[in-house]
Amino acid sequence: MAARSFSISRLPGFNAIAVLVFVVLYLPIIVLVIYSFNAGRSISDWEGLSLHWYAVAWDNDDVKDATIRSLYLAVTAAVISTAVATMAALGTTRRRAFRGQTFIYVMINQPLMVPEIVTAVALLIFFAAIRQATGYQGMGYLVAAHAAFCIPFAYLPIRARLEGMDLTLETAASDLYASDWQVFRHVTFPILLPGILAGLMLAFVTSLDDVVITVFIKSAGQDTLPTYMLGQIRRQVTGEINAISSALLALTVALLTLFFLLTRKRD
């Protein structure tokens, strides 16, 4: 096709590769979603539209357990990590640089820099020692681990929002007789809120997605949805996994859409 004008930013073959990339990126996911509605026992032959596998997953107590555990874990970890990340973001941005600030940055971003498998192994060893010493087998280990690796994901959007915020707004509020707490309550917090919600959502998705660390540190009978799926994939693949995957996918897309709407620049 002869271009009518010389397009500055066009590079030969780039568009074709890009479109192909998007097709290849989405095809397996779309196939997976379509086959989750397959009526047949086998998952490679299409035998008609049905919610059969969703019903199977729904009736499976293990799946139900794992779902509840996953959601409980994701909500708890997201709330804890967002709360502490908000405080840390308030403590580390927009103030005179203080001794140890770099150390705090490194600590907060540390989970992003260490391979998951290494963190998983470290927590396995550490928690095994605590288990031995205390006999505690509860969800505390998973909650602590998830809260920890969610912190950088919650921290990033909150910090970005804070850095984009005009410092003089707080000065103006204190000039207008607001106490430190009132400044936070009436000015900082409302302006920060979209960032906090975005952080909450990213932390939630991050926790929901985790496989490796959870597999290593969960006690017996503490399967989350991803670890349950990993166990199933190893045995025999059934349409049930398709159905669970599709449901998780839908949740992720919904949350991401919400996130985008929240962080989109207004005004």
């Binding site: 990340a85 405080m87 580390t92 600590m107 540390q110 192994v121 927590l123 602590a144």
Partner: peptide
């Protein structure tokens, strides 16, 4: 700055960074 960061640092020290030293 330190006080506000402290809760995050404690969680990270216990469930992310600290255990690396034990490894």
């Amino acid at each position: 700055g330190w006080l506000l960061s402290a809760p995050a640092l404690v969680i990270l020290a216990l469930a992310a960074v600290g255990p690396l030293i034990i490894v």
